[in-house]
């Protein structure tokens, strides 16, 4: 009884033409672009990799084979775990968490500073300077770091110049470049949500607290951080999801021996042409990162509605 009423109201509010256009566009987005592709990927991950002729045939059944591959390795090696892929997975998730934490620590002081000195032309200039790297291609940003971290890159040059190191350090092989690159890639997605919430904090609150003799640490812990929590959560969610799902940065900056989980997905798709296997890996990545985000949101008592603000 109640549902048709909403629809009729919707069409009354928007008229038949506009109402239909809105419905069709939003419906297309949600159903055709968001829900069905994810479902078909899920379905795909439970199927065998068959030649086109056998699709729909008797062999086209559901299987857990693709997931077993991740846990136990290729068929035949039952009993042992697929340590290589599992290690890559764990490393990806753990590194993404550390990248997120590092970004929070790096961005908080700047977000606070910008939020509190809003309107001054220096602060505006800083914001414009922040926007610039934000819109530069991810690949190019990774490339820029590769130039710097290369064996003959600027950092090695400076280190040897200062006699801090005798031999050039292989930052890329040791993954320092990867960590720096991941931290670099999405740092602004942490900064801007944080900055937006801190900007909305009434300065008087801080001054009142200071007036009452609160120390700076206490002011931040009791006033600024609680106020900034939705922004921090929003930024942390984005940075974590994007880092865990990053492909460009590990491809450009990753060492030859260490892989990122998305690279495994990429290999299954583009090198092995096994889409079913790739889908299974992608599903594992998607669900585990969503689970981690939801868990953290529950722990820190943040709502979904805060994300994206």
């Amino acid at each position: 009884m109640k549902k048709p009423m909403i629809f009729s109201e919707f069409f009354k509010n928007n008229g038949p033409v506009m109402g239909s256009i809105l419905m069709v566009l939003v419906g297309f987005w949600i159903i055709v672009l968001i829900v069905l592709p994810q479902l078909s990927m899920l379905d795909f991950s439970f199927r065998f990799n068959l030649p086109p002729a056998e699709l729909g045939g008797p062999k086209d059944n559901y299987t857990l084979k693709n997931y077993k591959q991740l846990v136990y390795g290729a068929a035949g090696s039952e009993g042992t775990y697929n340590t290589v892929d599992l290690m890559v997975f764990v490393r990806t998730i753990v590194t993404a968490i550390f990248v997120t934490i590092a970004n929070i620590i790096m961005c908080y002081p700047l977000a606070y500073y910008l939020g509190q000195s809003k309107g001054t032309s220096f602060a505006r200039l800083l914001v414009v300077m922040l926007i610039i790297p934000y819109w530069i291609n991810e690949i190019l940003r990774a490339f820029a770091l590769r130039i710097i971290f290369g064996e003959t890159g600027l950092i090695n040059e400076v280190l040897t110049f200062l006699h801090l190191t005798a031999e050039p350090i292989d930052f890329i092989r040791q993954n320092y470049a990867l960590y720096a690159g991941l931290g670099y890639a999405y740092i602004l997605l942490m900064l801007f949500p944080m900055y937006n919430v801190i900007e909305s904090l009434d300065r008087n609150q801080i001054e009142a607290a200071r007036d009452m003799g609160a120390s700076w640490i206490r002011i931040h812990r009791r006033i600024v951080i609680p106020h900034a929590k939705p922004g921090i959560a929003s930024g942390a969610t984005m940075v974590f999801m994007l880092s865990a799902g990053a492909l460009a940065v590990p491809q450009v900056l990753g060492g030859p021996s260490s892989l990122w989980f998305t690279q495994l997905v990429y290999q299954w798709f583009n090198d092995s042409l096994n889409w079913q296997q790739g889908s299974a890996y992608a599903i594992v990545l998607l669900f585990s990162s969503i689970a981690i985000v939801l868990t953290l949101m529950r722990i820190f008592k943040v709502n979904m509605g805060d994300i994206g603000k």
Partner: peptide, 14 residues
């Protein structure tokens, strides 16, 4: 929030 890789894969698969 969905990783871009996942979006790309789901699009071609679908």
């Amino acid at each position: 929030l969905i990783p871009g890789v996942v979006l790309g894969i789901s699009t071609i698969v679908f």
